[in-house]
Every structure is written in C-alpha cells, then in structure tokens.
Amino acid sequence: MIDWGWVVDHLDDLAGRTIQHLGFAVAALAIGFAIAFALSLWSLRQRRVYAPIIGFTGILYTIPSLALFAAMVPITGLSVLTAIIPLVLYTLLILVRNIVAGFDAVPADVEEAANGMGYTRRARLRAVELPLALPLIVAGVRVASVSTIGLVTITGALGDRFGGLGFFIFEGYRRSFPTEILFGAIPAMVLAVAVDLALVAVQGRLTPWTRAEVQPGMSSLDPVTADDVAPKAA
C-alpha cells in the first residue's frame, strides 16, 4: 500500500519541507512573542486594556485559519506575509493570557522585598518577576508552538511554495496518492508531538523547583484546567 521506493526518493524533499515548516513556525512565534510581550506589559500597567485585547485576539482565534489565510491573498498576494501574518495573529491570545497570568502570579510581597532591596522597576522585572513568571509563560509558548506547527500545514492551501510538511498532504491528495499524503501527515504529527514534549522538558529545566511534580509519561507539567485555551486545530 505504501510506495517505499517513492519515499526513499523523496527524503531530500522531506528535509527541505521540514526546514520550511520550522522556519515559518519559528518566525511566527518570535514575532508573535514580541508583540504579545509588549501587549502584556501594557496590560499589566493599564488594567483596562487587558479585556479588549483578550476579546479581540479571542475573536481572531475563533476564526477558522483557512478563512484568514484566504483573506490575506488579495491584500499581500502570494508572499510569505500571507502565511506569516495569520500565524502571528493566532499566537497572540494564548501568549498574552499566559504572560499576564505569569506576572500576576508573582506574589506581592516578593515585589515589595525587591523594591526594598533597591531594585529599579526594570531590574525588578528582569531579575525577579520574569523568572517567577516563567512557568506560565513557557506553558503558553508550548501551546502556541503546537498550535502554530499545526497551522503551518494549512498554509499549503495557498500553493506549492507554502505548507511545510502540509505540502505533501495537499499534493498527495490532488494526485490521489496515499503514500505522499502519509509522507506529509505522519512527520507533521511527529513534529507537533515532539515539540510539545521537548517544551515540557524545557519547562522542567527552566523551573527546577517544579521538577519533583513531573511524572514520567506526563505530557503536561501543570494540571490541565477546564478553561485552558486548546491549540488551534484548523
């Protein structure tokens, strides 16, 4: 059922598309994180902007990705921006929620102690609050990464220059060739799950004080709660 000869012949393509996949994902996450961090600091200083930011990014997050990618086509043509802009927008809800929640979780007496020790606002943020906020921030980066890796596959709908591993799924479907579909689908799944597990490990490294709670085989450091934002499916 699987054409192994074809698979062996296309391993170079697989490597190229994997690099493209990670390139799109890393670019979107880096830009998304920079924007989300700025929005979060703004929200922490001016509480009243938080609700509108979450409301707006929440509505964006609800819009099916194919619609947002398609909407970009008449505006940015078939350039890289057509894929990157929606990918960036979809990271914002998760990242802003988790960054703000992370800084909110810093106990007030820790901040006061830091003030008492003579920290400036900026130094306090970097040396005291950021390390304490990291567990939730990294948890947010993890969900945003998994979500973005999934969404990169859908950019393949824009054409052959996009899609990362999703390219094989679309082309395989057009050619009614199951081998090629699986050639994209299985590595895409492995990539998403591997990044998920790798970021769990990073989470443990950055926050050694929570390491005792990590049990083997657990996919999550923190208990999943009912109102967690799930990775965007499509």
């Binding site: 998994v146 890796i149 999934g150 969404l151 596959t153 859908i154 393949g156 999703g166 799924i169 994209g184 689908a185 299985i186 895409a188 799944m189 998403a192 799950v193 998920d196 996919s219 799930a230 990775p231 499916a233 499509a234």
Partner: peptide, 8 residues
C-alpha cells in the same frame, strides 16, 4: 490535542 488536524 497536539496533532495537527490536517495531519489527521
């Protein structure tokens, strides 16, 4: 939840 829907 980590599995991309297109991969599914």
């Amino acid at each position: 939840r980590a599995i991309p829907s297109l991969a599914l």
